[in-house]
């Protein structure tokens, strides 16, 4: 939360309100059924005016992403909807990294065998995925990584976004390293930074020593959210309708802090 938002949240003129109790007493003294007959206030008309005024404003992918992330991390125990139940790809994160990076010589590729039943049992546990995707955002991919190496303690969350049409003229990636507190469903952003990599391969080591390999997707503008739960890493990608501007992206990150 930035300073302005903190100011807004902390503002409390009601602390100086003079007549809370008196107002309640007056309200309780009101003979509601009798008054109702003689009081036809123009609430309906006002509501109609509201609806007429409520025209659509331009959509922004940053807000879509922000909404989505809010939903993901602040919605409690949303179950995966039936219609996106699969197929899912079950691979180790090492293999995922290797695939993404076009083989990384120093890492062993390991495929984890898992029956569909086992996978489904794992995947059907409460999972923080919204039932309805926000307007302007498409679900591109869900991957479940068995034997995940994304995190040592299973509580880190990585949100990253690649943007290859930025003002600098070369690909950039934003990593957001966060700690997700499953108990309270809160997301605490611990660090974030822009990463540039001309080779398309990024190896990023987080503060707790976790190695994350990633790949800059030059074709798509995607937001990928990866996290680990019950020793399984989950990654899903979202594709906004339009690329995020740097400003929108930073605003999104600011909003999450």
């Amino acid at each position: 939360m930035n300073k302005l938002e903190k100011m807004l949240y902390e503002a409390d003129p009601s602390a100086n309100a003079p007549g809370k109790c008196a107002a309640l007493a007056r309200l309780e003294a009101v003979d509601i059924p009798r008054r109702k007959a003689g009081r036809l206030r123009p609430a309906l008309a006002a509501a109609c005016v509201c609806l007429l005024l409520a025209g659509a404003v331009g959509t922004g992918a940053a807000q879509a992403a922000f909404e989505y992330i809010r939903e993901v991390f602040f919605t409690k125990e949303v179950v995966v909807p039936e219609e996106i139940e699969g197929p899912f790809e079950f691979i180790s994160s090492a293999e995922a990294s290797a695939r993404q990076c076009g083989e990384i010589e120093s890492r062993q590729v390991k495929t984890v065998e898992m029956s569909p039943e086992e996978a489904k049992a794992k995947f059907s546990t409460p999972f923080m995925l919204p039932e309805i995707l926000p307007e302007g955002m498409y679900l591109d991919m869900i991957k479940v990584y068995a034997d995940s190496e994304y995190s040592h303690d299973g509580r880190n969350v990585f949100v990253y976004y690649s943007n290859d049409n930025n003002k600098y003229g070369y690909p950039m990636m934003l990593f957001i390293i966060a700690r997700l507190d499953w108990e309270y469903d809160t997301l605490n952003i611990t660090e974030f930074q822009w990463i540039t990599d001309e080779k398309n391969i990024t190896k990023y080591i987080t503060a707790d020593g976790t190695e994350v390999y990633s790949f800059l997707n030059r074709e798509d503008h995607q937001i990928k959210i990866s996290f680990v739960k019950d020793n399984f890493g989950y990654t899903f990608s979202l594709r906004p309708e339009e690329p995020l501007t740097d400003e929108e992206l930073i605003a999104m990150v600011d909003s999450m802090r």
């Binding site: 938002e5 807004l8 949240y9 503002a11 509201c50 609806l51 409520a54 659509a56 404003v57 331009g58 959509t59 922004g60 940053a62 807000q63 879509a64 922000f66 909404e67 809010r70 926000p134 307007e135 302007g136 929108e248 605003a251 909003s255």
Partner: peptide
């Protein structure tokens, strides 16, 4: 910020989408 409503709730009251609410707030 003052009524502490969520974007989705604000969207319903304003008659727009949650995304639009985010845009307006931004």
């Amino acid at each position: 910020y003052f009524a502490r409503l969520k974007n989705k709730e604000i969207a319903r009251i304003l008659g727009c989408s949650g995304v639009n609410t985010g845009v307006i707030l931004h």
